[in-house]
């Protein structure tokens, strides 16, 4: 029986008090525990940013890599050993600026990874610049006169890319967040969860209060309805929906690749070249 304590890392998180990342760490541990996934079979790959420090704070196999490169590493891990539960984790700058192309293509490939983005709509670790999800007019160190660039919508982007599971959650609702992460891990294929996660130090606009006034739980009538998912993904303003917007079953990359389908690559024996393999070169 795996308990939440099995996932407790020995290093204490160094995030600012009340940072939205804390509840995500708790939710990830909770979801893994509920699903009885062993720490030894869990790999958490992160990028660079405040949130990306998370692998150090959880007892599992952690990989804290480069800014924006969460998903290629996570894909490599999954393809090497498809028995592992692979979680990609990073911030909005990491995922929607520097890692945009990887997000698009990993979603399209339907690699069986759960990608959780701690979306605080600002650069925290670099002390407060506008991020790809910062709202128009948002004042930051890099946009002293207000942001003039439209924010990216990660959910419609994920849908357009072909993600087979798209959801939004809120760090201020840890129970709901845990449930969504659990569903994301259970989903067979690429699952994307955008977590609205207030940065209490640098983002004075998108605060806990801001979200508490606006978020509501969305229950899809038909999770396979792409148009409905797209419409709900576009809703943002006085009301902000959270929940699973879209989920379909589709073949995973690992099911389609003729070598992957034979089982985890790490279990394949090393190929021993026979002389007859080389006859074509004679």
């Amino acid at each position: 029986m795996i308990t939440v304590n099995d996932f407790n890392g020995k290093v204490k998180p160094d995030w600012c008090p009340a940072c939205g990342n804390f509840s995500q760490l708790t939710a990830i541990k909770g979801a893994l525990t509920e699903l009885q996934i062993e720490p030894k079979n869990t790999v958490i790959v992160s990028g660079i940013g405040c949130s990306s420090n998370l692998p150090e704070f959880i007892r599992a196999y952690g990989f804290h890599g480069l800014h924006g490169r969460v998903l290629p590493v996570a894909s490599g891990v999954k393809w090497a050993n498809s028995d592992l539960t692979v979680i990609g984790y990073g911030g909005d700058g990491d995922g929607f600026f520097e890692g945009t192309q990887h997000f698009f293509h990993t979603a399209k490939r339907n690699v069986d990874i759960t990608y959780i983005v701690s979306d605080n709509q600002i650069f925290g670790l670099t002390t407060g610049q506008a991020s790809p999800t910062s709202e128009i007019g948002f004042v930051s160190k890099s946009t002293p006169d207000g942001n003039i660039e439209k924010p990216v919508n990660p959910l419609t982007f994920g849908l357009a890319a072909g993600a087979t599971f798209v959801a939004r959650a809120f760090s201020g609702d840890p129970k709901h967040l845990t449930e969504i992460i659990k569903r994301g891990i259970q989903h067979k294929g690429f699952s994307f969860i955008d977590v609205m996660s207030p940065c209490v130090t640098f983002n004075k606009l998108n605060t806990y209060d801001y979200f508490r006034k606006r978020v509501y739980k969305y229950e899809a009538k038909d999770l396979k309805d792409f148009s409905a998912a797209y419409r709900i993904s576009e809703e943002w303003g006085d009301k902000i929906p959270i929940g699973i917007f879209y989920e379909i079953e589709s073949k995973r990359y690992e099911e389609m690749d003729p070598v992957e389908v034979e089982g985890p690559l790490v279990t394949h024996p090393i190929y021993s070249v026979k002389d007859e393999d080389l006859e074509e070169l004679v």
Partner: peptide, 27 residues
């Protein structure tokens, strides 16, 4: 024939990070 996983990815950054992920996980 040689039981190999071969992938052309979206760019070289991805290609090298995938290879690092694969090596990290033991192949």
């Amino acid at each position: 024939k040689f039981d190999l996983f071969v992938k052309v990815s979206e760019d070289e950054i991805s290609a090298i990070n995938m290879a690092i992920g694969g090596n990290y996980a033991g192949v």
